[in-house]
Nucleic acid binder design. Sequence first.
DNA 1: CGGGGTTTATTGACTCGTCAATCAAGAAGC
DNA 2: GCTTCTTGATTGACGAGTCAATAAACCCCG
Lengths: 187, 187
Amino acid sequence: MEPIRRDALVKAAIAEIGEAGSLDVTVSQIARRAGMSSALAHHYFGSKEQMMVAAMRHILTLFGAEVRGALAMAKTPADRVEAIVRASFSSQNFRAETAAAWLNFYVEAQTSQPTRRLLGVYHRRLRSNLVFAFRPLVADPEQAAETVSALIDGVYLRQVLRSDAMTNAEAIGLILRAVDRLKDTRP
Amino acid sequence: MEPIRRDALVKAAIAEIGEAGSLDVTVSQIARRAGMSSALAHHYFGSKEQMMVAAMRHILTLFGAEVRGALAMAKTPADRVEAIVRASFSSQNFRAETAAAWLNFYVEAQTSQPTRRLLGVYHRRLRSNLVFAFRPLVADPEQAAETVSALIDGVYLRQVLRSDAMTNAEAIGLILRAVDRLKDTRP
DNA sequence: CGGGGTTTATTGACTCGTCAATCAAGAAGC
DNA sequence: GCTTCTTGATTGACGAGTCAATAAACCCCG
């Protein structure tokens, strides 16, 4: 029972956060969406914070799997960069719902140590993947990685707000063009 | 009295949000920091939301003034882009405190219509400044503007989280280098 | 089998705290 | 004496977390 319930709660939490656009969702709402009482949610998670951390870990796990999958197919360094960008904006990840949850985790990270840790792990992994991919392409792979990371986060952030949302294809196009410009043409 | 009180409250609100890293600051906390009772804060602002909107408008006003000032000094198109970037990361704006408030306004914008409107205004203004500056420099100024906007937001976002924070000089350097790469070298 | 006992699942009702917003009443100036 | 300031006290709502109690599943041994 436990794994089923926890799983249902995590998914309900993400859906609820996405819909509300805020971390201020009540445990009762989440529990109701997951088809149980709030008491049961507390029974399985102990606290709301732990539930939120689990939700975030879930998103990060999906994202990590997608990146790994895309990277496995990449042969050239340029392919690797493209794989990471494409995975970041896969239709799976690049939805108002997920972006909203993401944004709220950033906020949460300012006060919740576990959330901060988790986001740190994601950042380091993304960064190290990008640095590795960029190494044969540019003189300063650290800087290129930093730039692309910021660009990805920035496009996500704007997605949350804008009414005239970008499609994921547009987002990928925008970033890949920027990546193209980052590559050294003058050795 | 009214303008003095409102001003004190707005500044206290920004400071409090920055310190807490969250919009979940109580009216009482803000009022206390501004040296008055929470009842008085309500008297002058009517509601917490209106107070938050005023705080945001204040930040945006300062930011706008800084950009205008920097643009006034710029002669070449390249200068204009640089002016906007430098203003975005002026030590005035690029502080954990302000960045945290900024982030929280994005969250707020998801549920508060006035906040959303205000952020929209800022986005459009930034964008139009950038498009104008890029027009003589690149084939697709809209795209360049979009890229640089996202980059700015992305660097801010990461600033909020990271322990090994960037200095504003580093941030400016990162973005200006990217801008350099965006410029058309092949007509 | 088969029932007594133990563990697991589940909930409604409740506690406790917090906080935005209100109000009535007191000071202070004019 | 009227208006503008100002506050302490209060209200009302809401939400996280707890608890005691019920129901269901499982398990062991006679």
